[in-house]
């Protein structure tokens, strides 16, 4: 017999298997999930959830799909949070400090309370990446925020009303497009293909008989 624990979904008690994730516990209780469930494995940020263990003063945040239930856990899901997403043209913006001031001026109102970092479901140093964004250090902001799943939990805790994941998204795109080193072999290959340089080789291969294709495949050399 599987061990059971009590969880309180939106305040209502259900006995669920102790090994279940919060998401599985909801389904075990009979919920048909529509909102708040995407990848079911920690990548999409659809399942932001707040919880408290009875008797514990601290409020925790997590992803429901990848967090195990605990006895006496009080759970409230946060399947949507109104973030601000500034609209911009990636071809026209530049990776200057100014662009953050223009698009996300609220980041300069950060009071340094660190609530975002404490709440982050991915364990990221959110306050730090916002500080990098303030200073226009997009490469660092991009690196620090890379594992962000855009669940919005940090923003729900922020007294300054900052939309952290959107700020980080902008920083990463600026970094990827403008600051990361240019890849010469890629640009060269795209040009060569446009000139049709690889066309003959490919056509020749495709025209081979099935037996010859098999032979070529089975004897191809494999880069070490």
């Amino acid at each position: 017999m599987e061990q059971m624990v009590n969880v309180y979904l939106y305040g209502k008690r259900y006995a669920v298997p102790a090994s279940a994730t919060i998401m599985e516990a909801m389904e075990f209780a009979g919920y048909q999930l529509v909102r708040g469930c995407g990848c079911r494995n920690g990548f999409c940020g659809a399942c932001a959830t707040l919880y408290r263990i009875a008797g514990d003063r601290e409020l925790h945040a997590c992803l429901a799909c990848s967090t195990k239930v605990e006895d006496n856990m009080y759970v409230a899901t946060l399947p949507f949070f109104p973030l601000v997403k500034a609209v911009y043209d990636i071809e026209k913006v530049r990776p200057s400090q100014q662009i953050m001031m223009q698009l996300y001026p609220e980041i300069y109102a950060c009071v340094g309370c660190n609530a975002c970092t404490k709440a982050c479901t991915q364990g990221l140093n959110v306050m730090q990446y916002i500080a990098y964004a303030q200073r226009g250090e997009y490469e660092k902001c991009a690196e620090e925020s890379f594992d962000c799943v855009m669940c919005g939990v940090c923003s729900s805790r922020c007294p300054a009303g900052i939309s952290h994941p959107q700020v980080a998204m902008l920083a990463r795109r600026l970094n990827g497009k403008y600051l990361a080193p240019i890849c010469e072999h890629l640009d060269k290959r795209v040009e060569e293909i446009k000139e049709g340089r690889y066309e003959a080789l490919l056509q020749e291969l495709m025209a081979q008989s099935p037996e010859e294709l098999r032979r070529l495949y089975n004897t191809r050399d494999i880069e070490k």
Partner: peptide
């Protein structure tokens, strides 16, 4: 399949130009 492999480098370039952060060496080599 011919279309897939022929247009592959351009697909990477397109993503890169949109700001996708591919793993690169300091000299830009993928």
């Amino acid at each position: 399949l011919a279309k897939l492999v022929t247009e592959a480098p351009e697909a990477i370039q397109w993503l890169s130009n949109l700001g996708v952060e591919f793993d690169k060496a300091p000299d830009g080599t993928m």
